[in-house]
Design a protein around this nucleic acid. Structure first.
Length: 551
DNA sequence: CATCCGAATGCTAATCGTTG
DNA sequence: CAACGATTAGCATTCGGATG
């Protein structure tokens, strides 16, 4: 059977997985790097390869409804392989392997159907005739060389996960090329070569691919190192309970200073505490809602509009420059409160979940718990299109800040928006690409297409918490990420954790400190900030219903 | 139930435009 | 022109579901 020949193990590249004897691979690879760099790089651009695959795309789509981007990925990963095949004979390392004669270069002209059929036949022959296996595997091995990293003495191979995509693309191509002739002409059916793995080439590819997959699942890095109950090392950086608390406080401070600046433009901006006292802390206000009729705005909980004695007021007309400044300040508040939610919500959110929070309209996310007087967030955890409902209850401090943001900052934002000509983009979260008009789902009420631009904008502003007026979209990740790059201020820049690092650290705390089954609903999760600080590990991340196993 | 593939998410380096 | 910000490409990692 096959044996695995360890060619060269440096870092964790893919070269150790060639399951054939490949003695000359290292020298050859060195030549690949150097010689390929002498060729016209343009030749193996993915645009070219995409061009090449154009006739294939139709069949791909028929076979398996491959998406447009998947085809792009194929082209991208496959182009070096097809290029090497194209110019193989010109290389110094070319082995004397039997291969079918092939006179068609795919890089010269677009292939007409007839020429394309010839090319497909060429690969079909490689696949069906076992004598060509050596040549094919040699090509695959050479395609593992990272030709972008050219040095004269060292060979750079692709990392394992990347080579997986290359092999995947090669598999897709060989399947297609081998079967295309029998679809286009009358020729014998060779499907069995694949299904029963009769072809040597196909066995080699699938076996190697399996080895790669095994490697990928087994070498998941231990990302988090333990350093006691309240600290750990994440990706080489120190992380602790205190780190999180500082991050939280720094963002809170940023929120405070931004609202302070807003007072230059608006009168009657109360403090966070007073707003909370007049609204949620007032127990005469009934916060309970009928779950079946939860369609109105969160703001309406306290009356038809924001109560007059709490609402800010515009004292004068502002200039366009001042409007810009206001928008900037609103965004600062938004970012800060997003981070406070991120830290205080009990269980780490993903960014898109926070980004799309709504305070009104269908699928509203904000509700208030009449007992604890805290805001709770009914969001959906949706990594793969299925929507699993998740309820997260905020601690009192975060809740009050979010209340302030919703009741004071959002109205200010919408007030400014009313005097601007800018409109919100239909593609609120930059996820639709070019075909925005084909999607209706992203509109604020699900029927956005029927709305005018102005109507749509109003709809968005009256439902989404985190709309960014400066670009007409929801607040972007790049902006959000700054909240972790700037803070905590006491930690040196290069020692700060990214969002991903934070997730790992927080999940570590959750697993370390909580037994979710034993946590009683409600009580523990809702604490004053002091308690929040002291009990970050034990309670705050053990909010009932939070999803522990996010990752 | 394990395998393996598609697709989503997250991060970063590169690019481009703007502004003091 | 430096500094800064926004945008994009592409690289890396992880999840979940189809599949047999």
């Amino acid at each position: 059977m096959y044996r695995t020949a360890v060619v060269r193990v440096e870092k964790r590249d893919c070269s150790s997985h060639f399951n054939e004897s490949v003695a000359p691979i290292t020298e050859a690879a060195l030549s690949v790097q150097q010689e390929v760099s002498n060729f016209d790089r343009e030749k193996f651009s993915s645009t070219k390869a995409r061009f090449l695959l154009a006739p294939a795309s139709l069949l791909f789509q028929l076979l398996k409804s491959k998406s447009e981007s998947k085809l792009g990925d194929y082209a991208h990963n496959f182009c070096v392989f097809i290029y090497l095949d194209d110019v193989y004979a010109q290389f110094s390392f070319a082995g004397n392997f039997p291969r079918p004669t092939d006179t068609i270069s795919v890089f010269e002209e677009p292939l007409a159907d007839e020429l394309f059929l010839k090319k497909a036949r060429y690969f079909r022959e490689i696949l069906t005739d076992d004598r060509h296996t050596a040549y094919f595997t040699h090509l695959c091995q050479l395609a593992a060389v990272d030709i972008r990293k050219v040095t004269s003495e060292k060979v750079e191979f692709l990392p394992v996960f990347q080579y997986r995509y290359v092999l995947d693309a090669i598999k897709a191509w060989t399947t297609y090329a081998a079967l295309y002739p029998q679809a286009a002409t009358t020729i014998s059916d060779i499907t069995a070569l694949f299904v029963e793995k009769k072809a040597q080439v196909w066995r080699w590819v699938t076996t190697t691919y399996s080895l790669l997959c095994n490697e990928l699942t087994q070498t998941t890095q231990r990302f988090v190192k333990e350093r006691g109950p309240n600290a750990c090392i994440v990706g080489g950086k120190h992380f602790s309970k205190d780190y999180l608390v500082e991050l939280y406080h720094d963002n809170q401070r940023e929120f405070d200073s931004a609202t302070e600046s807003l007072r230059r433009y608006f009168g009657n901006i109360l403090t966070v505490e007073i707003v909370a006292d007049r609204l949620v802390n007032d127990r005469s206000v009934n916060l309970a809602e009928n779950p079946r009729s939860r369609k109105s705005s969160f703001q309406n909980l306290f009356g038809a509009a924001v109560p007059a004695d709490v609402a800010p007021c515009a004292e004068r007309t502002t200039s366009p420059d001042e409007d810009k400044d206001i928008i900037h300040l609103v965004n600062l508040c938004a970012r800060a409160v997003m981070w406070m939610i991120y830290v205080g919500a009990g269980g780490p959110y993903r960014f898109p979940e926070i980004q799309k929070l709504k305070y009104a309209s269908n699928d509203r996310d904000l509700y208030a718990d009449s007992e604890s007087r805290c805001i709770e967030i009914h969001a959906g955890y949706s990594k793969a299109q299925i929507l699993r409902p998740v309820t997260k209850q905020l601690d009192k401090n975060t809740s009050d800040y979010l209340l302030f943001y919703t009741m004071i900052v959002v109205p200010i934002r919408n007030h400014v928006a009313g005097r601007l000509s800018s409109v919100m983009s239909r593609d609120l979260a930059d996820e639709m690409g070019m075909r925005v008009e084909e999607h209706t789902a992203n509109a604020a009420d699900g029927e956005g297409c029927r709305l005018s631009d102005a109507g749509f904008t109003t709809q968005v502003l009256n439902s989404y918490l985190f709309a960014d007026l400066s670009c007409g979209k929801l607040l972007k990740y790049a902006n959000f990420a700054k909240g972790a790059r700037k803070f905590p201020v006491s930690v040196p820049q290069d020692q700060r954790l990214s969002l991903r690092d934070l997730r790992h650290g927080i999940i570590y705390f959750m697993r370390r400190h909580t037994n979710v089954g034993r946590i009683v609903a409600g009580s523990d999760a809702v604490e004053r900030l002091a308690g929040h600080t002291a009990a970050t590990g034990r309670t705050v991340y053990a909010v009932p219903d939070s999803v522990v196993n996010h990752e």
